[in-house]
Design a protein around this nucleic acid. Structure first.
Lengths: 213, 213
DNA sequence: GTCTATATAGGGATAGAC
DNA sequence: GTCTATCCCTATATAGAC
């Protein structure tokens, strides 16, 4: 139902990219702040510097917009991970690299996990479908490497699905539950970015030690 | 602003508890499903078996209702944890017990983390204030025990805040990111409840191994 | 305390001009 | 492609009867 004719270049607002992209970027920004639910179409239009009606012209309705933002975010998350686990390096090295990469990406998009969280709660079907399309590759690659490392005796045998969830939990949770994290940090008086920078190193270590045979 | 005169007992709908409690329970149930944002007041009223106007009578507005549900949920979460960490047992034993307890509670309220997640995103101030009131005690108790165990040489020295976040991540994330978890489980064809039951045992083990000196 | 009926606002979506 | 103007619906919130 959404119609996207990119034909004749626009003339007016040439600030960054074409109008459709500007709207998408604006929607992304607002959704990160307010969530896909509490975001007002007006606010998105303002942020994009266009009229509310244009949002409907390009994305039909709020759902179309949410879906587009969601899909682009997912597509950006996983291909990067894909490359790491495709590498033919030892498990330990790949893990460290993947963790570092994930933290860099989330550090640059700290509200992404919260948004995805909400989306996955409101539209679990869409999320699963999307995951299957974009994340099955990387997940399979990680699984294969873990299995191989276990078989080779480098890692303690652990249930694969538990480990996959644990790895993601240790990376994503500090962001998705940011307010919780900050409560903990209030004690030590530490800065969130600081905490994340340190975590980038300690998490891989934590996982590897837990997996020692 | 919310007014709660519990004076004269009600006469009609006596099904479970007084009306205020029934409304609160209903709001809890609906919020778990739809989130505090997408929930309709009508749906809550239906679930409680009362009229929409009564919701306003007791809780003034949707925000008041959300706050009440949120506060009760938080107050139920942490006192239980409190008791465990107050026990004068070895760290390892307390950890296993606390993990088991947490999983039991979340297993019975699987959508609670998602709800809290959203609340903490939309009202970070309220969340922090609430955390300070209800969770600082338990957190301090855990911290003290970990520090003592490290000083005694039973645990590898690790940054305390990192560990606190990691422990909670490993427990909460599978629920808060349930759709993600289920995607992972789709591979192994396993059931969510099954996965959680197993996790109750493996997570403590995972943490303790990661902390070996 | 609990209901019915109603005021009111806010926002999503569309029609149509330019 | 982009804007203005408007329709319409939904949900919240209140007033007032019982």
């Amino acid at each position: 139902m959404p119609m996207r004719q990119k034909a004749g270049r626009a003339m007016a607002q040439e600030r960054d990219g074409d109008t459709e992209t500007r709207i998408l970027d604006a929607a992304h920004a607002v959704f990160m702040r307010k969530g896909a639910y509490g975001a007002r179409m007006q606010e998105i239009a303002d942020e994009a510097g266009v009229n509310r009606a244009l949002l409907h012209y390009y994305f039909h309705d709020r759902e179309g917009l949410a879906r587009a933002v969601f899909e682009r975010a997912m597509e950006e998350m996983f291909p990067a991970a894909m490359r790491v686990w495709a590498a033919d390096a030892p498990f330990e090295q790949n893990l460290r690299e993947a963790v570092r990469l994930a933290f860099d990406h989330l550090g640059a998009n700290p509200y992404l996990p919260g948004f995805l969280q909400t989306e996955m709660h409101v539209h679990p079907e869409r999320f699963r479908e999307m995951m299957a399309r974009v994340a099955d590759g990387p997940l399979a690659a990680i699984s294969a490497q873990i299995r191989a490392a276990i078989d080779a005796g480098h890692l303690r045998p652990v249930p694969l699905d538990q480990l996959l969830v644990s790895i993601h939990a240790l990376i994503v949770f500090p962001f998705s539950a940011r307010a919780f994290t900050e409560t903990v940090l209030a004690e030590s008086g530490r800065d969130f970015d600081d905490f994340i920078a340190e975590r980038k190193e300690t998490v891989a270590e934590f996982i590897l030690r837990a997996l020692r045979p």
